[in-house]
Design a protein around this nucleic acid. Sequence first.
RNA 1: GGUCCCAUCGUCUAGCCUGGCCUAGGACGGAGCCCUCUCAAGGCUUAAACACGGGUUCGAAUCCCGUUGGGACCA
Length: 481
Amino acid sequence: MSEVRVRFAPSPTGFLHIGGVRTALFNWLFARQQRGVFVLRIEDTDQSRSTDASIQAIVDGMHWVGLDWDEGPFRQTERMELYRSRAFELLERGKAYWCICTPEELESRRKEAEAKGLSPRYDGRCRNLAVGSPPGEAALRFKAPQEGQIVVEDLIKGRVAFDTSVLDDLIILRSNGYPTYNFSVVVDDGLMGITHVVRGDDHLTNTPRQIPIFEALGFPLPHFGHLPMILGSDKTRLSKRHGATSIMAYKEMGYLPEAMINYLVRLGWSHGDQEIFSRQELIEKFSWKNVQTSPAVFNPEKLLWLNAEYIKTGDIGRVVEALEPLLAASGLKAELRSCSREWLARLVLMVRERTKTLVEMVHWVGPYFGEAVTFEEEAAKKFLTPAVAPVLAKLAARFEALPSFSKQRWEEAFKKLVEEEGMKLGQLAQPVRVALTGRTASPGLFEVMEVLGRERTLSRLRRGMERAAEGSPSPEKPSQS
RNA sequence: GGUCCCAUCGUCUAGCCUGGCCUAGGACGGAGCCCUCUCAAGGCUUAAACACGGGUUCGAAUCCCGUUGGGACCA
């Protein structure tokens, strides 16, 4: 058994696309499962705007989702001589020929053919001309087979047959000396010893064009697999209109890479009813047989759900680690330095089940840093009213009488006071919540106190009481009962 | 236009290869109820699909043909 070698060959378009990540993922999973080699190759031949920055974007994206490669990144623009020499080799061996038809001629003949209802293929005019050294502008064409069938045993689609009559003699080297896509791909896949070419569905019809080139070049034929496309909600190709398509945009939106991978792998692949997979499980269970043949619609809501799952059930250290840079970026650098990892983990543990993204988590976690609270005006206006100020004062006094924080004891004290005042639990809970967090929504009150600690709980309670005593600064009359 | 691919709830999918276990299962999202100091989470319940038409067969989501509808590629 020879070693499995697969590749991911994106073109640098400025960022790494979600569809690309899925293609990379399937290749990567197969490579890791088979203990093979995963090659990264940048297909930048006709990308005049291909820059180091867009290659970096691909590398960064791959790093973020944790898809590591064993060889590369190779750049096609650095391999031009390879393509040229292989093209000339085909010329020498009579498998390619110079075509001196000008683009204008080709265009007019194409239109003519179309008008007659024929397929607009190259008519092979220069095929038997045997042009020696070309006088000026000329392209090199491959002599495609003219009879029989080309059968692709696709890993995913099964057997697909093409009639060679649909193939024309395609250009392999343009008159400007640049190789065409179909040629450079074959040279690379052949030279790199790729055993399984797995790529997007959109290349399926390129395959019968490429197979004869593999053969002419004397390369062993790899296996082929064509993955169905990822579509947007309107069933058209996924694009910016459907939301973010760059993988890094999801990092910025607070998604965990493991959630991203889990979502993407289920888009076109399944293992029974299982929804959640660890990376190791994926490597073990992945199989081409279970890859879907039909396209899939990208569903941001399910991705969001998965992200929430990973946030609330994932390893806490891992979640904290992913959150920290976002916290630092939100202006909490100093606070982050002065708090302990244990305390931060407790805080994250407290809020994680109410946040679906890390960005949401940053918002949820905000009130627990620093001494003072920032009241949300609406919340303060509604719940910190003069009427509750005395009760808040009593509560603070009772807590203060307790020597140290105890969740249970404080809760008892709280409930006792509620009872004595003839209130409902919620009537006091909300003002206290606003006093402690500045907001109307938070984790359980006593958990909040625990994370805040005795001193901050007390001082925030007093501050809330003051604010309540001041009453609403606006002239509006409170209308709530 | 030619060639090729595809078709199960709104979406991701199981089942299809190797017909009967399918009055079609799971998940997201939706609806309702429960829990509840708020917000979540959680629990329970529920609506929702085999594109259509022919065949083959005792029996078809599953096999065959066609139609329709999507998509890709070549220009």
